[in-house]
Amino acid sequence: MSRKLLHHGFRAFTALCALLACSILGWLIFAIARRGWPAISWQFFTEQIRLVGASGGIFYNLIGTGILLLTAFITSSPMALSLALLHGVYLREGRWKRALETLLYVINGMPSIVCGIFGLIVFVQFLGWGKSWLSGGFLLGIIMLPTVTVALMERIASLPVRYVEAATGLGLRQSQIIWSIILPQSLSGLVTGSLLGLARAAGEIAPIMFTATIFAGATIPHGVKESPVLSLPYHIFILAQDSFDPSVGAKVWGTALVMIGLVFVLSLIALPARLKMHEEAHHD
């Protein structure tokens, strides 16, 4: 009898935990959607900021975040491909392979504000770029690197061995095997990994606040030096610090809703496929 009681009690307790966790998070979405929705209109996307965020829209913030993310994708892809190839093809089991994994763990756990300080030293000061979209994009690329690399590594590891064996049997060289078999077959890993990585990078402020982004007065950058961009998360960050003006308030919530929408769209394209792959891996 007491066994049964314990069983039901325990199950109820864990269910309660799950319910509480989900409802905290559900409330969060609801709170933002409810307040942000009234601010959303066509003009909100096509106009630039006016009156310190109290009026106008977020056009150049969207452009700026777009530029940063595109740069981050372009920076992270070659590095991720290289690291994944090293891990899956070139390196044998042993010290170097473990070092590479450790490197990924360290980058993944790196506080993003430390990346920002690093960028301030290297790009802003040593190279004398001032605030520039390029340094922000590079730093965001580093931030998303582990996510992309691990997705690629998993894809490469799950390739059937007979593909490579068949290619070797046909007399292909290692680099030919990489370009004709491994890379085309693991393209989906690059795409899903990048989408998830970009979703994470899109909301980061700490790496770009000193290096790439300003609150107002930037449009489309024309060079590298002294060419900052606006961005969505920094806009929210600045306005959140003094949102007493109700009209500013409405715009902040609107921007927050757009931000969440962007992140969710990026991850939703990638997540189901990736999770399914994980699940299958677990059942082997």
Partner: peptide
């Protein structure tokens, strides 16, 4: 999927 989505909510949103 829901939990992974929520793990991706940007920190500034939590801050707000």
């Amino acid at each position: 999927v829901v939990i992974e989505l929520l793990a991706g909510v940007p920190s500034v949103i939590y801050g707000l």
